[in-house]
Design a protein around this nucleic acid. Structure first.
Lengths: 198, 198, 198, 198
DNA sequence: ACGTAAGCGAGACGGTACGTCGCGTCTTACC
DNA sequence: GGTAAGACGCGACGTACCGTCTCGCTTACGT
């Protein structure tokens, strides 16, 4: 029977309740009772689906990453050719749609475990993209790929955090992407207004 | 009476115990009892110094940031002239010295609150530096300063995380600084091996 | 439609499982789940036959008492004439046949409710016998009939408890009956070895 | 410090609450919460004194039996000489004083465990008395001592149950003792009104 | 003999209580 | 006045059962 309709409904309610409540009061301040009350579900039922609230948060995050992966895959392929910024655009859009969840993940709620899941997933995509581009264009990195990947993912996360913490988008996603593309192509020195390297 | 020697000793013990234990088992998994036992201090004594474990962690982080600020101030002044990477170098050195504490803060332990304190402090320094350089060199930013600041801080945090999570430094701090400087001056496009902007 | 064969089978299985398990672990320690598992029956099925485990135990006991009544009735009639001890003999035989059930009832399992059902039933029979004998032989009791009945039933229960708690009968039922008859006819003073009343 | 006064007070409150509530609603129907609420004590405090409600009941019963033992000891010694009924008199008086507790024990609450403790204690006293009388008066039992003891204790328990279940004593303790003494000296046959053995 | 009403297995669910752990407060006694 | 030791009221934990409720499958009965 694949999955009982009641089960799907219960889990959905619990996930939504978690996201809402973490946003309101923070992950640590929550009790399982709070979540189940908000979800209008018995506490015992919670435990028949999830081991504890960490487990629930981890699964919610995992589902989010799976969804993101699905949306990123074609964008990454397209991007591997040139330097279009399509993946980061797709991610910004996704973040807009799942704004609340992105916020609590990026804030580091849950002792940063979900955030670590997120950055690891991004790092994996980044590494893949690097490898793809290197092979396709037969170029060789000028600085350590590990450092490069960390810097890149950090940049993405930093911008995303800023982006989702505004009630309304502070600027169109396309404009953010353009800026990040410029930054990637010309560097921060240029971006701050200087003209030529030291 | 600046501060009783016993008090200093007790607080030091509690701070060290916290850092050790968070590293070992994670912030949420800790109880006040655990911390006081490790610090060899009575539980009641803990409560005469700190409201709860969040309070302790916040104060430990605040002290770290104050220390970092002291070390960063001259470096930032020097850096404001050119583009030397002195502040990031100083930060890497500080992170080496206080490696355990940096690790738990950067991991997002404590629902990311200490990490937020850290990034906010960095953002403040970054903004200051931007402003200083703009004025001094009368240049005008080519992309939104907010986005730029977020991207920059994110990059720093990302690299720092990677740097402190290695038991032994994966490369000399000076080399990391050189890479980040190259990245700032020429951009990621160049760094991955390409030659000219699209 | 007397009763569906499936129903009879299910109830029998549940009753047997209850008796076995109460004997092994005690009534309070049991869960309905335990009983249904032992009986190889679904838990929901249990609830379609009995309200709860107390109900099951009560019905099992009631059935036992009905059976006992059937066997006691002729014995009591016969006994009403003289002082033969036939009823107690019949009861001992019944207790041998249904030893496990007698044991748990007489132990007071189920907060003593089944035991109370048992003693009440015995008291009813005892009262009936007293009345019958009084009328038939036109004798008048020398001590309060209520006290007499309680003492008698207590004696029976005490001896039964001892009798059924031995794996193998500690002595033939007929011998027990003879002793009790002697005790009834001559009293405990004589039974302990003394010769004449004080 | 032997025993803290607070501790004594807390335990007393819990014991009294247990007895009251078992009387009102039955042992199985009670929760620890109910008991602690009635005793005006925190639930956690209950668990720092007793393992569970069975443990509490067992200790209450054990204390009762210790008290009874103290009161029975001199009576038994006196009784060992003749056939005075002093022990049963003492027991009836004790039962009047601790009526509620006697009621719940004799009802078989707690799956009959406390009742078993009670009957075992009585059996021990009975056996002791038998032995004493046999030796002192150099008489030899005419029926199996085991059966005799069981019958005797059963009789006592049966009469006690009846005695304590009346709100007001149905008759003076001395009269009950007289009856039981008559019963012991002359037997039930005589008691029901007959004159000579068959 | 066979269609159909029933009994039944499986298991999700809202609940209640369990026994444990940790919280933050407090009191008492030391140094 | 700072600390150690530890009792207390409180609240949340994760577990175990309760009794109720679908939902399909199987089985014995009645025409």
């Amino acid at each position: 029977m694949a999955e009982d309709r009641r089960i799907r409904k219960t889990r959905k309610a619990l996930r939504d309740a978690l996201v809402d409540l973490v946003l309101e009061r923070g992950f640590t301040a929550l009790s399982v009772e709070d979540v189940t009350q908000r979800a209008d579900v018995a506490r015992a039922t919670f435990y028949s689906h999830f081991r504890d609230k960490e487990d629930l948060f981890a699964r919610v995050t995992a589902d989010l990453l799976a969804e993101l992966d699905v949306r990123l895959r074609p964008a990454v392929r397209e991007n591997a050719v040139g330097f279009t910024g399509r993946p980061i655009l797709e991610m910004l859009r996704h973040a807009r749609e799942e704004r609340d969840l992105y916020r609590i993940v990026l804030r580091g709620e849950g002792d940063g475990k979900p955030l670590r899941m997120f950055t690891d997933a991004c790092a994996r995509v980044a590494a893949e993209e690097f490898r793809g581009r290197s092979e396709r264009n037969s170029v060789v990195p000028r600085i350590d790929p590990e450092v490069l990947a960390r810097a890149w993912v950090g940049e993405q996360v930093g911008v995303l955090q800023w982006w989702v913490e505004h009630e309304t988008p502070p600027m169109p996603a396309e404009e953010v992407v353009r800026m990040l593309l410029d930054l990637a192509l010309r560097g921060r020195y240029w971006a701050t207004g200087f003209d030529a390297p030291v």
